[in-house]
């Protein structure tokens, strides 16, 4: 295979929080009737994760499974394994009315980490990020300032963000602005459960 590069080629920045474009990530969109056993099975097998509830993301050793809409799931897996996993999915789905497609290259993925991560994200995303409301396991499709994004938490201080590849530079730049020195908002940190 020829040289493959992610949108920002693993760019990184340290400010109020650490921001990293984490490189190529395998992603498969699965659309279908989520109540069908076949669809569920295909999704859980391909991701190795349990089936998520509404607005949930479940994680496995080699991937994750995210609920994106009432008829859409997102499977995360190692970039190199997408075609194999996709082929298996397609085979299992057979004649089931569903659509499974590789979207790895259409996206960029970032990690945002640090104590102020919730506050930095709250500057850009209209989401209730209170520690008791938005926890690891939750995923939101929302916006990051002016672009569409999906966010979730790996643990209490670490966000993951997916956006479209073409706007990766904007996402990175706007995150850097939100994480600029001196701009700590001190909202969520103060609300941590005592």
């Amino acid at each position: 295979m020829s040289e493959t590069i992610s949108a920002l080629n693993n760019a990184g920045y340290s400010g109020l929080v650490r921001i990293d474009e984490t490189g190529l990530q395998g992603m498969i969109t699965l659309r279908g009737d989520l109540s069908l056993t076949t669809v569920k099975k295909v999704a859980t097998t391909a991701s190795g994760a349990t089936f998520p509830g509404q607005r949930q993301i479940t994680v496995s050793d080699t991937g994750a499974l995210a609920w994106m809409s009432p008829d859409e799931l997102l499977i995360l897996c190692p970039y190199e394994e997408v075609s194999d996993r996709l082929a298996k999915m397609t085979k299992t789905l057979g004649n089931t009315n569903a659509l499974a497609v590789d979207v790895s290259d259409a996206r960029a993925i970032f990690a945002i980490s640090g104590e102020d991560a919730r506050d930095v994200m709250a500057k850009l995303c209209p989401v209730d990020l209170h520690p008791e409301v938005f926890k690891p396991g939750e995923i939101r499709r929302t916006r990051l300032a002016q672009i569409a994004a999906a966010i979730w938490m790996e643990d209490d201080d670490n966000f993951r963000l997916i956006c479209f590849r073409s706007v990766a530079q904007y996402a990175y730049d706007v995150l850097k602005v939100a994480a600029a020195a001196g701009s700590a908002a001190g909202f969520h940190a103060a609300q941590d459960p005592v």
Binding site: L124, A145, Q146, F164, R165, V167, Q169, V174, A178
Partner: peptide
Amino acid sequence: GEARGSVFQPLRRTP
């Protein structure tokens, strides 16, 4: 808000 200078508006870039 933050929408000024380089982040005034998202620019879409091809590979």
